[in-house]
Structure formats: C-alpha cells, structure tokens
Design a protein around this nucleic acid. Structure first.
Lengths: 224, 224
DNA sequence: GAACTATCTTTACAAGAGAAAGATTAAGCG
DNA sequence: CGCTTAATCTTTCTCTTGTAAAGATAGTTC
C-alpha cells in the first residue's frame, strides 16, 4: 500500500557520502526533501485509504511523509489547498478511467461503460471521492485547477452523450452523471446494503441502472 | 431563522417570581435548562444553516444554546452522536416531505413527485443533507435510530416503486433514488452551475430526469 | 565565494473534542 | 418537612489540530 514516493526518489544518491565533515554524522535523511509536494500528495492518498476522509489531518500527512508538521505549508497554502490538489488528482484519475471508452464504437455502449467506470472509480477510492465532492466543491472558485480537472472529466461524459444523441445530449449526460454519482454515493455510504434490495446484483447494478437512464425518451412523449 | 426552541419553552413560567430570596438576583436563566436536548438540536440546525456542515462545532452549538461547552455531553455521547440525531431528524423530515404523495393515484406521477420532493428537501437544507449522507452513514450501525429513520424514508420510495411495477419495483426504486440523490448532490455541491448545461431548466430538471429513470424498460429488451 | 531564495524545523498559539470533578437542582422517600 | 440520590450543568484540564512566525539549511545565481 505504501507508495514508493514516500521515500525520496530524487536523483540524489547518498548524501552521507559527501565528506563535508558535518558535525553530526547521524544525518540520515537530507534536510531538503527534493520532491515533497508529490510525496505529500501520495501520503495523503495513503492516509485517506487507511483512515478515511474524516481521519485525515495535515499532521498525519506530514508524519507519513517524514517531515515536520509545518513543512507542507511551503507547498500548500492550507489543508484545504492540499485537499484540493488531492481532488484534482482524483478528477484526473476519473478522466483516465473513462478515457478508454472512446474506442467503443457504439455510442450507447460507450455511455454505459462510462457509467461503469465512474462507479468503479468511486468505489475504488472512497475517501478520495468524498474529498472530491465534499465541501470543497462549493468553494471550487478558490481552486481553479480542481475546477478545471472536474470540468475536463464532465466534458468527456458530455461529449459521449452528445455523440449518442446530439439534441438531448446535455440532458442525457446530466441524467447519467446524476445516476452514477448517486449510486456511487449510496453504495460507498453503505446505505444500500442492509436494505430490501438483496436480490439486486451489485456487480451489474451500475450498468443496468444506466440502461434505464440513458434510454432515449420516445418522441411521442416529447411532443405531448 | 432562529428557532423558537432556542429559548426554553418548557412550562416553567418565570422562575424569578419565586420569592425564595436567592442571594443573587442576577439569575436570569435557570441552572437547569429544561429542554436542552431539543434546544441543542435546533441550535445545530441553525448553525448548519449559517456556517455549513464544515463549520459546525460542538462548542458552537453549545454557545448557540446558551450553555457551557460540556453540557451537550449529558445528552449526546459525542459530537458524532449529536450529528446522528440531526441526521435522524433530517431523514424524518425527508419522510414527511414525501408523505403527501401517497394521495396521488397515478403510480408514475407519485414516483415523480417523490423524486421532486427528495431533491427539494435536499436543496432546502444543504448542510443537513451533507450530514445525513456523510461519514456517519458508513457507521450507521452505531446509530440505530438514524439507521431506522433512513430505512423508513427508503421504504416509502420502495413502496411507491413496487406499486408502479411489482416486478421491477426494487430496481426502479434504486434507480430513482440514485438519480435524485446524485442530482441533489451535484446541485448543492455547485458542480452543475458553470457547466455547459445552462439551457437546462433547474426547476423542472428533477422531474424530467426522473421521467427517464422511471420509464419501464421495454419487455422486448428484457428477454434478450 | 557571497548574497539570495526556496525549503525545512522549531516554537508558539488559538480553538476544538472530550474527560474529570465539582456545583446546582429536581425528585423520591422517610 | 428534611435527607438522599440522580440528573443536569459548569469549571478546569489535557490532548490534538491548523496555522503563524522565526530560525536553520541548502541549493542557486552573480
């Protein structure tokens, strides 16, 4: 589980080899980390995976990265800023998870696979998902990069929906997104298990539900 | 916005009228609050509405209720316990919001109205909604009352779905719930505004999306 | 090599969660 | 009525956390 980034991977082989005769030979790790920003983000991912979104603290992250608790402030303005960076990565990861579907020729099948990828990605990184769509979202103006990353992810979904049905594309996209988002949230909140839905297969659920939502509304209904 | 419960409403008219000659006549509020538990919950609602879910602290709630910061511990085991009680109320409120739809004869129309009520209720109390479906949900075994309240709310939805289509009831219920839940979350996270969906009417959106999800899958597709 | 700047640490502080112990009141019981 | 007991509320204390400030260290540039 521990990311390799947690131990400095910078090309900086053996500083103790430097015979500058530093007074204290006990110095094992260098003063400067070399790649702390990335290390902190990786550490945050680890902490999130271990203790969940609620149990994450700046000091935890710093500890996991092996630096003092104030060091992160030279790379992130605040805890929220760090979380925004985590969320940004999460949105990028989501985009990556959906990306392979562009190879699917059938537009409807592509939408279904996007929905599946969305739910799969959310369930794979529950705490991250919570950070991505937590309180930070309402303050996304303060974090332009995160905002851009989330916009990119949605753009992929919207493009797929418009390819499927140019006219109703936006509505289909929003429907699919809402459904996948809601299902993912309900599942990782544990709301679903324990309910009288035991006969529904958890594996195929995302696709089956998405099939309903994506179905193009009959034109007869539209011009009522 | 201030709830009337914030000032003790207990039948305890004017304790200063008691001519017991207490040494200090400055005593305006009695030592015992009389109805602190309810007052705290109301205060928590106020704080949530004011500062949001992230800005809520036990001490804030206690301050708003006019008691010391340790007083709440005599009514709630912990902050999470208080939040669970808030969530319980939220689920009950949700049930109340959906309840009037039982009068609707048309089963599909009833489902649509339930979806509308769900989204409306969520948007009316954003912070509360976040508490209801936050980290607490994953620990719902620790809070039986909250669990029961959420189960009651879902039972209403499930019943309506089964009335509409006995066979596919559960799946329709889950679809509608996921969709409404996802849409509500995306809306109150502010994810939607700012996206290229401006042409979609926010008011009618819940109903229109729900129409898609609730549509019964054609039998031709089912027996493929 | 010296000044500069980025990076990291130490120290300090305010705020919050929660525990512990004492004060105050209500209720029950003789 | 007076005493006892339990419930409720307050004070005080400890531990953790986010964040600011100042100092230490090390690359970088002239």
């Amino acid at each position: 589980m521990k990311s390799p980034l947690l131990t400095s991977t910078q090309p900086k082989a053996q500083p103790p080899a430097k015979a500058k005769s530093t007074r204290k030979p006990k110095v094992v790790k260098p003063y400067h980390h070399g790649n702390l920003r990335e290390t902190l983000l990786a550490a945050a991912d680890d902490v999130l995976a271990t203790k969940g979104a609620a149990g994450l603290t700046l000091r935890d992250v710093a500890r996991a990265a092996g630096v003092s608790h104030a060091a992160p402030y030279h790379h992130f303005a605040s805890l929220d800023d760090l979380l925004a960076a985590v969320a940004t990565r999460g949105f990028d990861r989501l985009s990556e998870a959906m990306a392979p579907t562009v190879a699917v020729a059938d537009t409807k099948e592509r939408l279904l696979q996007i929905s599946e990828a969305y739910v799969r990605c959310a369930l794979a990184n529950p705490a991250q998902f919570r950070v991505m769509f937590g309180t930070l979202c309402a303050r996304k103006n303060e974090f332009p990069e995160m905002r851009a990353a989330s916009a990119r992810a949605f753009a992929m979904l919207l493009a797929a929906a418009c390819a499927h049905d140019a006219k109703q594309g936006p509505e289909i996209a929003l429907t699919g997104w809402s459904l996948s988002h809601g299902l993912a949230n309900l599942m990782l909140d544990g709301v679903i298990d324990g309910l009288p839905l035991a006969d529904l297969d958890t594996e195929t659920m995302p696709r089956r539900l998405a099939e309903r939502a994506i179905a193009v509304t009959p034109k007869a209904r539209l011009r009522k």
